[in-house]
Simulated scan of single mutants.
Amino acid sequence: MSGYGISIFDRLIEQQLLTPYLERAMVADKWPEEYTVTVDSRPYSGTADGYFHPSSHCLSSPRWLYYVIHPDTKDKMVYPKRTLQSAMTLAMGSALHAVVQTQFEMSGLIRREDIEIPLVDEKRGWRGHADWRIKHPNGKRYGVEMKTMNSRSFRNLIAPKEFWVYQLNCYLDALDLDEGIILVAEAGYPYEFKEFHISRDDELLSKLYAKWDYVRECIARNTPPESFCCSYGSSDMNTCRARFECHLKGTSG
């Protein structure tokens, strides 16, 4: 058996459900010499739209969410200006995501209709896009989120970040799936991958939805949650996008 075959076998034994297929596709002898990759460079669509977003609103405090979601304050939030570094980080992450996605699609692991699936939960008031939904050759269906990290952070990663787990749980709930995969790509040589497999956690979702429901109730009463999530004058306050509507108005409401 060749070294390549052993690699694939070992990866499958280790329950790496996606990486073996990516490796096989990338090094296949009959793979086309060139192919088209579409990079999604659209700006983030979740700014001041009045919805919760699993990609950024799962771990936030109720008071912060109140100001970010409230129709009277959501357009007044202070968002950081883009820099060359932040723009390049986004561009390179999107490009790597596009390459992997294209390889999976060309190999038949995912279909066009199962890419960037728009999800809206009007009952809970959230919206987002799931990266991929796949029917794996093992017969199971998975929701998949891909993340990219610099090499140092990637090497130190031993478990998925908490907000990734929350995000994917929301998507699994909306897609009516029980299992998901977080695929993490190293954005730099040697371009390694790590997979984290999770099962939908209904208790986690219940607590998250209860928090979001509470924020909606506060908005309906036009009264913010009393508990501040940072101290006045702290570095957290000075960088918070809601600071002018929250702390700097000198009131708790």
Score class of each variant (00 low, 15 high):
G5N: 11
G5M: 08
G5T: 04
I6S: 15
S7M: 11
F9P: 00
F9H: 13
F9C: 04
I13V: 12
Q16N: 15
L17K: 13
L18W: 03
P20F: 08
E23W: 07
R24V: 13
R24A: 15
A25M: 12
M26R: 15
K30W: 14
W31Y: 13
W31C: 13
T38W: 10
V39Q: 01
V39I: 15
D40G: 10
D40H: 06
P43L: 01
S45W: 14
S45D: 14
G46E: 04
G46C: 00
D49M: 01
D49F: 02
D49H: 02
Y51S: 08
F52Y: 11
H53F: 03
H57E: 04
C58L: 00
L59G: 04
S61K: 01
S61Q: 05
P62W: 10
R63Q: 09
W64Q: 11
Y67C: 08
H70A: 15
D75Q: 11
D75V: 03
M77Y: 07
L84D: 14
S86K: 06
M88Y: 13
T89V: 10
L90C: 07
A91L: 13
M92A: 09
G93R: 09
G93I: 10
S94I: 10
A95P: 00
L96T: 11
Q103N: 13
L109H: 01
E113N: 06
D114V: 00
E116W: 01
P118K: 08
P118L: 10
L119S: 04
G125N: 04
G128E: 03
H129R: 13
W132Q: 14
R133Q: 14
I134E: 07
I134H: 05
P137L: 06
N138I: 00
N138L: 04
G139C: 06
K140L: 12
M146V: 11
M149Y: 03
M149P: 02
M149D: 07
N150Y: 04
S153L: 05
R155L: 13
I158Y: 15
A159L: 12
A159N: 02
K161T: 01
E162C: 09
F163T: 11
V165P: 02
L168F: 10
N169F: 02
Y171C: 02
D173I: 01
L175Q: 12
E179K: 03
I181K: 01
I182S: 02
I182A: 01
L183H: 10
A185I: 07
A187I: 05
G188E: 13
P190T: 03
Y191K: 05
Y191V: 03
K194W: 04
I198L: 07
I198T: 01
D201T: 00
D201H: 03
L204N: 06
L205N: 04
L205C: 06
S206F: 07
L208W: 09
A210E: 14
A210Y: 08
A210H: 09
W212C: 08
Y214N: 05
R216C: 05
E217P: 03
C218A: 12
A220M: 08
N222C: 09
N222W: 03
T223D: 10
T223M: 07
T223K: 05
P225W: 03
P225N: 05
C229W: 15
Y232G: 14
Y232E: 15
S234C: 10
M237W: 15
N238Y: 07
N238K: 10
C240Y: 14
R241Y: 15
F244M: 12
F244W: 14
E245H: 04
H247S: 09
